[in-house]
């Protein structure tokens, strides 16, 4: 579903990504972790071309992202993305947040779009918040709406960039629960997260990044067992002790 091959990226002379290669198959859940600044967000943003890259290739559902002829809006509409800071549109009601892209991008009618949005809102347990504005919801609620908004586009896969790291601890689980449910339903997911409990529960593979490179790319059992790179061990020890 997602094939990342030898991707390198520079900001000026600073290399953010170094020869990254990995793939996410259909219905697979891949967790990406690594220290802050290691390039996780950059890599995941390359997948739906929110960030350009200078070398290598990324193919999503058979379509080469870096090909200048690729219709990027069309591709992105099929790839759901959830951000660390939710990024709901603050001036729209929750209903409009859920409906707008369905209407403007997919060309669905308003009624159909709202209907679909509300169904998904119900699925993330927020049915009665439809008329509110994002600023009136808690962080955990906003992030669940953001997931529903992405799902409303009927994505073929979902990208998550630290979806719980801006949340107060008591709200993390309500978001993870939604993600776990998604994983169980067979959604293809690439998740940047440090929630190792989530990784243990649903991940098929875990990728560890450091200084722009993929240092470790292993099946979950191998990653949490032995052996693995020293840097990954140090990192794991650090976050598991928290």
């Amino acid at each position: 579903m997602i094939e990342i091959k030898n991707v390198s990226k520079w900001y000026g002379s600073f290399q953010v990504l170094t020869d990254c290669t990995t793939q996410v198959s259909k219905s697979e859940v891949v967790v990406v972790c690594g220290p802050s600044g290691s390039g996780k967000s950059t890599l995941i943003k390359c997948v739906n071309a929110l960030e350009p890259f200078q070398q290598g290739s990324i193919v999503v559902d058979g379509i080469a992202v870096e090909n200048p002829k690729t219709d990027l809006p069309k591709l992105r509409a099929r790839v759901g993305m959830v951000f660390q800071n939710f990024e709901l549109f603050p001036h729209m009601t929750i209903t409009d947040n859920l409906a707008i892209a369905q209407i403007k991008v997919l060309g669905r009618g308003r009624e159909e779009a709202v209907d679909k949005g509300l169904k998904l809102l119900d699925r993330v347990g927020l049915k009665n918040q439809a008329a509110k504005f994002p600023g009136q919801l808690s962080g955990g609620q906003q992030q669940r709406v953001a997931i529903a908004r992405a799902l409303a586009m009927d994505p073929i896969c979902m990208l998550f960039d630290e979806p719980t790291s801006a949340l107060d601890p008591e709200m993390i689980n309500e978001v993870l629960d939604v993600m776990v449910q998604l994983a169980h339903e067979g959604m293809t997911m690439m998740c940047v997260t440090h929630e190792m409990g989530f990784a243990r529960k649903v991940a098929n593979r875990v990728i560890f990044m450091d200084r722009g490179a993929i240092v470790e790319d292993a099946a979950k059992e191998d990653f949490f067992g032995q052996p693995r790179s020293e840097r990954a061990q140090t990192f794991l020890a650090k976050i598991l002790n928290h």
């Binding site: 992105r76 993305m81 951000f83 990024e87 709901l88 707008i100 892209a101 991008v105």
Partner: peptide
């Protein structure tokens, strides 16, 4: 506005112009 607002619009399949029309300008004017 946070850069993430543009990314969120683009990630939903908006064109650059649509991110202005529906996401960024309505907030910027306010």
């Amino acid at each position: 506005l946070s850069r993430g607002q543009r990314f969120a619009g683009l990630a939903l399949g908006f064109t650059e112009w649509q991110t202005y029309r529906y996401v960024r300008l309505p907030m910027a004017y306010r």
